[in-house]
Nucleic acid binder design. Sequence first.
DNA 1: CTAGGGTTAG
Length: 673
Amino acid sequence: MCSISSYATCSSTLLTSSSSSSCSFPCSSLKTTILTLPTTISNVSVSATPKHVWTRTPRSPVSHTNKLQRRTRTQQQQYEPSYLDRSVDMKELLTSIGQTHNVEQLYALMSPFNNRQLSIRFMVSILSREPDWQRSIAILDWMNEKARYSPSLSAYNVVLRNVLRAKQWHFAHGLFDEMRQKGLSPDRYTYSTLITCFSKQGLFDSSFFWLQQMERDKISGDLVLYSNLIEFARKLCDYSKAISIFNTLKASANIAPDLIAYNTMICVFGKAKLLREARLLLQEMREKGVSPNTASYSTLLAIYVDNQKFVEALSLFSEMNELKCPIDLTTCNIMIDVYGQLQMIKEADCFFWGMKKMGIEPNVVSYNTILRVYGEAELFGEAVHLFSLMQRKGIPQNVVTYNTMINIYGKSLEHEKATNLIQEMQSRGIQPNAITYSTIISIWEKAGKLDRAAMLFHKLRTSGVKIDEVLYQTMIVAYQKAGLVAHAKRLLNELKQQDNVSRETAITILAKAGKVDEAMWVFRQAFDAGEVKDISVFGCIIDIFSMDRKYAHVVEVFEKMREVGHFPDSNVIALVLNAFGKLRQFERADALYKQMYEEGCVFSDEVHFQMLGLYGERRDFKMVESLFEKLDSYPNINKKELHFVVAHIYERADRFNDASRIMSRMKSQSKKK
DNA sequence: CTAGGGTTAG
């Protein structure tokens, strides 16, 4: 099974080119992060809370256990009863602390407790309830300087959390050092806090760094840490890795996933396109005594919508109702979408307008969704009417609302009105984004106003607005549709040296435009510079090489992908297995397939069928049979298809007896049912 | 004392 370390490094026996030392995952230390972030101690503390003057006095961390203090302690223990937490009203104390504006005031407030025994638990409670990071540091300092004991590890953990939440990386680093100097070893809470906070901020390098530190300290995970790692993998869109970690979690004896972990995994399985597994998770939850809630269902509903499985969504929704699972705003919003996508406009409309009666107040998302439904159904009058109703009634609008309306005006061929909306949104303080621009560019292109589109695009390129692949592609397509192929080509060529287009974006555009060599050129450059992090870029390149039958390149990119620690999804592993087959490297295919199984990855049926096919191609029928038996024992696999696949393999190898044996076995199995 | 989930636009 997958250890935490296999999460981080690629332990593949297949990959001859990668060793752990050559792992090029950019594991910068926290220090590097500090350097790259424009936050300095002084400007943050001033700008964030100008009226407060919190400063942290520099001091040596282990200076307070001197003889004098020890003496006072024994004296006080003799003459004074130890101070009981119960006699202090925590709320009152917190309120008073909240009114202090600097260290002096805080120390003055705490002075009655100087050299007295407030329990460490009490202080940790205080610290955890003090939301202000500066104040929590000041309390920590007070404990160090005035109280009779050193703050515990948990005290430091809590303060670290507050400091990290406030994005004070400087202080976080300092606190961590201070803990170590005081002989406190960071525990799983410490590391959980660090890993989570950084991955939450999108600072995956730092998050990864702390994960490695944790492993170095040989600290084992608990549910919190595993959940964090899953969340971490999910943010990187590495769903295979998330599944692998989930299976490790389930395999460890004393950890069981809870409701939220399950809900997260429903989402992960859905994103990995493993819909059957996502659905089965609801079942598994019930068996394990974790009742699915509204979010569990909403997650699955959203997955069905993502995969265009609207009928399944409807049936799941009725199951929800039968089981009396409550419906909330999010559920409603998804269902409006479902009805809309099924062209059930009346139902969508009724659902939207009936929400209030159900006691659910529609929000921006509800309005935006129904607007889009009207637009798709070409009910332009309804859309415009509802939009003006929103404006009249002061229902909040956002950039999505405007983008939707701009799209609708585009559909109704009122491109001037669409254009005016951009001005209107800007004047109302809602900034257009890449979606706004690509929408208006294609509207202008359709209206024959290509010059206008080109001018806008040029303005965007020179003004430093971040341009994503869809926006760039929209302009290329606009040129192509207008027959200006040379312009389209020029844009593609310029991609290699664009300042405000990331190289990851450039690779994706080039690949999708079929510019295989150019895409690879940029990819190699970007990879060597450590710029390729997005898992989808690897998938995209592997896709085009596979289509181009450049199988050695497929393997090369896959190895790089593993080097940076990504796991393959079903699509990637299928293409790589195929490439190994084409290169007649069956052992490598076999090893990869087995390794991914060991890691606890779950792939679509097609991946298993592909491996069966490879064994067949090599005429290794022993392996065909053994894998077939193994797959047949899996509960979540399409048995009928499995039998067809295996029978077909035998047919192609001219082993018709075996083929018919498999087919009759299938028939007898289905009879048993 | 610590963490984490679901919905909208090109």
